[in-house]
Measured scan of single mutants.
Amino acid sequence: KLETFPLDVLVNTAAEDLPRGVDPSRKENHLSDEDFKAVFGMTRSAFANLPLWKQQNLKKEKGLF
């Protein structure tokens, strides 16, 4: 399991300012399950079932792209 970080560490943070080991294209993977659901309004599995373009739009909207 990946290390999780608080939302404010990941949202609207440039790649070079992210904690070590965080993939800038997969910031959402480093949210706790609770934060993930609070941000996206759905579970990880529901998010994973969305088309890629919709996932990317949601990530942009939430500052996690």
Results as ranks from 00 to 15, higher is better:
K1S: 06
K1Q: 04
L2A: 15
E3L: 14
T4S: 08
T4D: 06
F5E: 14
F5W: 14
P6T: 13
P6E: 14
D8F: 00
D8A: 09
D8S: 13
L10A: 08
V11M: 15
V11P: 03
V11D: 07
N12I: 01
N12G: 09
A14I: 08
A15R: 11
E16M: 05
D17A: 11
D17W: 06
D17Q: 09
L18T: 07
L18Y: 04
P19N: 02
P19E: 05
P19S: 03
R20D: 13
R20L: 09
R20P: 13
R20Q: 14
R20Y: 08
G21Q: 09
G21C: 10
G21I: 07
D23V: 04
D23E: 03
P24F: 04
P24C: 07
P24A: 10
S25M: 12
S25Y: 13
S25F: 11
S25P: 03
R26H: 15
R26W: 09
K27H: 09
E28C: 03
E28S: 03
E28V: 02
E28K: 01
E28F: 02
N29I: 08
H30I: 14
H30P: 04
H30R: 06
H30K: 06
L31I: 06
L31K: 00
S32R: 05
S32L: 04
D33G: 03
D33W: 00
E34P: 11
D35E: 05
F36V: 02
A38R: 12
A38I: 10
A38H: 10
V39E: 06
V39W: 05
V39A: 11
F40T: 02
G41E: 10
G41I: 01
G41H: 09
M42V: 07
M42N: 00
T43W: 01
T43V: 05
T43L: 01
R44V: 02
R44E: 05
R44N: 03
R44F: 01
S45A: 09
S45E: 14
A46Y: 06
A46L: 13
A46E: 15
F47G: 01
F47D: 03
A48R: 11
A48W: 08
N49W: 01
N49S: 14
L50T: 04
L50W: 01
L50A: 03
P51N: 02
P51Q: 00
P51Y: 00
P51C: 01
L52N: 15
L52T: 12
L52H: 12
W53S: 15
W53M: 05
W53Q: 05
W53E: 14
K54A: 11
K54D: 09
K54L: 10
K54S: 09
K54I: 09
Q55A: 04
Q55N: 02
Q55C: 00
Q55W: 00
Q56F: 05
N57Q: 15
N57P: 00
L58T: 03
L58P: 00
L58E: 02
K60V: 12
E61G: 05
E61V: 06
E61D: 07
E61T: 08
K62P: 02
L64Y: 02
F65V: 11
F65M: 14
F65G: 14
